Amino acid sequence: MNDDLQHSRWLARLATMTFCVIALVIVTEAAIVAVAPRSAAALAFLLAFRAPVPFYLYALWTMRLAFGRIAGGEVFSTVLPSSLTRLGLALALGATATVFVSPLALRLMGGYRHGAYAAFDPSAITIGLAGLFLVILSRLFSRAVMLQNELDEISLMPIRVTLDTVLTNRKMTGKQLAQAVGLSETQLSLFRSGKVRGIRFATLARLCAALDCRPGDLVDYDYNPKDLHNDDAADT
């Protein structure tokens, strides 16, 4: 773990240095052009030619912030989703500027007589697709984190569902019970396995009526003093 934190610090510093070097080169280039003859036209050309650079600089700064947060002790599950989304969008926009914006701007400056409508740049196209992949990956990662959190809560839930015992005593199948109370087999299966955060009183009443039992026959509880301080109690 300490090695990961140390690597994150070095990567944050590397991203910062790279960002500063590129920004310094661009500023120096603009200053040189500004004092050259026909500086207005030259600056316009430079802006069109370097249109993708701000997006790539933002991508570098996003990486710098992400590595800095990880080095500061934040967990990956809180850092990666938002960072991957911003990084992916920055790369995709930078690639779009490289392939389309810069060529069109340069062609416009030439009075539509010279230049292409788009640039065939395999590296930029690959970077753009990689950026879109990162955006999709961040969404999948966010969903995976949410699902894992729900599973963790379920695994720690002190309430145990004892519906299977009642079904066995009543000689009834889950399919028959689901049809009797108006639930899908999937919904009933989730309840039987305890993979739910709660159940409506109306549904519980239907289950008790169909099984001729009491609520206490369907669920059980193992006492734990920590449940008195459970944060989820505020939701009830």
Rank of each mutant, 00 (worst) to 15 (best):
L84G: 05
P37F: 02
Y58I: 15
D3A: 14
A116I: 07
V101S: 04
P103I: 02
G115E: 00
V101Q: 05
T165K: 14
G216T: 00
T28M: 13
V35R: 05
A15E: 04
L14A: 15
L14W: 09
L183T: 05
A71T: 00
P103E: 03
V145L: 04
T203I: 01
L163Q: 07
T173G: 10
A12V: 05
A130Y: 09
A66I: 00
E74N: 08
V166T: 07
D121F: 05
H229Q: 10
R214I: 08
Q6C: 13
V21Q: 00
F49D: 11
P54K: 03
A180D: 10
P103D: 00
D220T: 12
R200I: 03
L137T: 10
G110A: 00
W61Q: 08
E29W: 12
D164T: 15
S102W: 05
Q148A: 13
S82N: 09
F100I: 07
L89Y: 12
A42W: 10
A66H: 00
L167V: 04
M109C: 06
L84N: 02
Q187H: 06
S83A: 07
N224T: 10
L65S: 08
G111T: 04
C20M: 15
R64L: 06
V35S: 11
H114M: 13
R50K: 14
G94L: 03
L93H: 01
G94T: 03
S39R: 09
A105P: 00
R38S: 13
A59W: 01
D3N: 15
P103C: 04
S82Q: 14
K171L: 11
A119L: 12
L188N: 03
A48W: 02
A92K: 02
R160I: 10
V135Y: 03
T16Q: 13
L137S: 14
A40C: 09
T16A: 14
V75M: 11
Y117M: 12
V196D: 02
L190A: 10
A119Y: 14
L91R: 04
A202Q: 12
L134S: 02
G128V: 01
Y56F: 04
S8Y: 09
G72I: 05
A124Y: 01
F201G: 12
A95H: 02
